[in-house]
Design a protein around this nucleic acid. Structure first.
Length: 572
DNA sequence: ATAGGGTTAG
């Protein structure tokens, strides 16, 4: 088999030389191998690679890539034949070439994978990878920003907001213009991880570079304002959008409805639904060419859809307008406007949150009756509420029903719910075993680890907690705010406020902002520890200086009285 | 590309 791969002439000699190349990794051996590979590749004799694979080092691969740098198909073929990442991971140059080629041939997922491996398995920083990509772009005449933008995406995928930002900044310094698309993706990521403050900074920066916002940018802006309950401003952004000649779409409309529900103005939401988005525009009178735009929206069939109604119902529940919510739910049931499980899930989830699991189960049954298949969200809500109620038996029963009767495979969220239930209701060791099962399925994330970490901390198992943190790092799972909050809580609870403060510094250095939970953790622990007023206030000052917005309730109930007391003291 | 439900921390 080995022999048939060689050209007949001189076959014997080549095999012998190859054989010695295998045994003695001297430079000439590698040279012979390299030349043999090149000759065979030029003749498109791919199978030759398979046979010499055991003798190929990453430096040979790198030389081959360099040799064929102007023949992308050859390099990609070699890359796949040698089995992908592991043979080239040691050589940043090879990786740079392959990433560019993958992106140019629109194999984004594979490029993403390779970049992530470089960062996770090899520990290269995002800026290291960028440098490599810039070098190979220069050395091999690649063009465009697509490879760099894939790197940004890889950073956000592994949870490194800071890495993504650094890459974008560095690219700017190198004179590259990242696309609006890439900025939008990054903005989306910041909203996803809940870093609204950073969202605003990045958006401002993007505009300061005179990027033209498109409909997606505007939609994210409206969404961010709605999330912060700044609906009036969201509406004014909507107007600005019209003025800029950017036609809002159904997503824009649904986001505004979302915002209206958040501030409890469901009437406004309803009006938006009835598209009264016209009367109202004319009344404001400041919209140039509104009629044209609105006519266009009509043409594009922007009307209430499944998102609209589920957004509204969910908003009503959140505002405590239960009857209103149920009224709309019944309405869409009667009118047969429901196409999927979503609206049912919202009701089920409300019932679960209010510990009405039996009624939630009734809705599940009614879904079957209506011929509507419950989805993972339906089961997820039920399973989680059983777990939270400490009823692992029913949680696992529902889990089995889902798999056996509904033939649905659990997803990450459901695994995480069960993980939490197991840790809290069974044992942390059982949780650890469950994690290894999750690892086997490839479904685990930072939440999974946080859940187990929290259990270790709650049980005072410091060594296990630290080991878990180390393995997170090894597997490329970035710590998030919750990870830090768990550790801060641990240190505060054992009275090591100094350690907890050190952690806060690490958080800040990693670009993770503190939040109300961090604040509440410090202050409530200090109170429980019966620390003196002076120390508690000092902690408060420290946190405020770190940029945290104090939790309103804690500030009112604890800090303000302490400050008043201190003032009185100073006066007397 | 973007929007609705379900997972971790006080």
């Amino acid at each position: 088999m080995f022999l048939s791969l060689f050209p007949p002439k001189g076959r014997h000699l080549l095999v012998r030389r190859l054989h010695s190349a295998k045994q003695f990794t001297n430079p000439s051996g590698e040279d012979i191998l390299f030349r043999a590979i090149c000759t065979n590749l030029r003749q498109k004799k791919w199978k030759f690679l398979d046979s010499v694979l055991p003798s190929m080092t990453s430096s040979t691969v790198c030389r081959v890539f360099h040799e064929f740098r102007n023949s992308p198909p050859v390099i990609l073929e070699v890359y796949y034949r040698i089995g992908g990442v592991r043979y080239i991971l040691d050589s940043l140059t090879s990786c740079g070439i392959v990433i560019h080629l993958m992106v140019n041939s629109k194999r984004y997922d594979e490029a993403l994978c390779l970049i992530k491996e470089l960062m996770i398995a090899k520990g290269h920083s995002p800026l290291d990878v960028l440098k490599t990509l810039l070098n190979s772009q220069r050395d091999f005449d690649f063009s465009g920003c697509a490879a760099f933008e894939t790197l940004v995406r890889a950073c956000t995928d592994v949870g490194s907001s800071r890495g993504a930002y650094e890459v974008i900044k560095q690219l700017r310094m190198e004179g590259f213009q990242v696309s609006v698309h890439a900025w939008n993706n990054f903005l989306n990521h910041l909203l996803k991880v809940g870093d609204v403050a950073q969202f605003w900074r990045v958006r401002k920066e993007m505009i300061s570079y005179s990027y033209v916002e498109n409909v997606i940018t505007f939609n994210w802006t409206i969404y961010a304002l709605c999330k912060e309950h700044r609906v009036i401003e969201a509406i004014s952004v909507f107007y600005r959008m019209l003025k800029n000649g950017i036609i809002p779409n159904d997503v824009t409309l649904n986001m505004l409805i979302h915002g209206a529900c958040w501030i409890g103005d469901c009437d406004m939401a309803l009006k938006l639904i009835q598209k009264i988005v016209i009367h109202w525009l004319y009344k404001e009178g400041d919209v140039v060419g509104a009629s044209v735009l609105i006519a266009d929206m009509f043409k594009r069939n922007i009307c209430p859809d499944r998102y609209t109604y589920s957004t509204l119902i969910s908003g009503l529940f959140r505002n405590g307008q239960i009857n209103e919510a149920l009224k709309h739910y019944t309405y869409i049931l009667e009118k047969n406007l429901i196409e999927d499980a979503f609206s049912h899930n919202i009701v089920i989830n409300y019932l679960c949150r209010t510990k009405n699991i039996s009624r939630a189960k009734q809705i599940l049954c009614s879904m079957f009756v209506r011929g509507l298949v419950p989805d993972l969200g339906t089961y997820g809500s039920l399973i989680d509420s059983y777990c939270k109620a400490g009823d692992m038996e029913n949680a696992l029963q529902t889990y089995n029903d889902m798999i056996l009767s509904a033939k649905k495979n659990p997803n990450l969220v459901i695994f995480n719910s069960i993980m939490d239930g197991i840790c809290k209701e069974i044992s942390v060791d059982a949780g650890k075993a469950f994690l290894s099962g999750m690892r086997d399925t490839g479904l685990f994330d930072v939440i999974t680890f946080n859940t187990l970490l929290n259990s270790y901390c709650a049980g005072g198992q410091v060594d296990n907690a630290l080991n878990l943190l180390a393995s997170m790092r090894k597997e490329g799972i970035s710590f998030n705010r919750v990870t830090f909050n768990i550790m801060v809580n641990f240190f505060c609870k054992v009275g090591s406020f100094q350690q907890a403060k050190k952690l806060v510094n690490v958080m800040r250095a990693q670009g993770i902002n503190l939040d109300g939970v961090t604040y509440a953790t410090f202050i409530t622990c200090a109170m429980k520890e019966r620390r003196g007023a002076e120390e508690v206030i000092e902690l408060h000052d420290f946190l405020v200086l770190q940029g945290v917005i104090p939790d309103t309730q804690i500030y009112k109930e604890i800090i303000r009285p302490l400050l008043l007391l201190q003032n009185e003291h100073m006066l007397t």
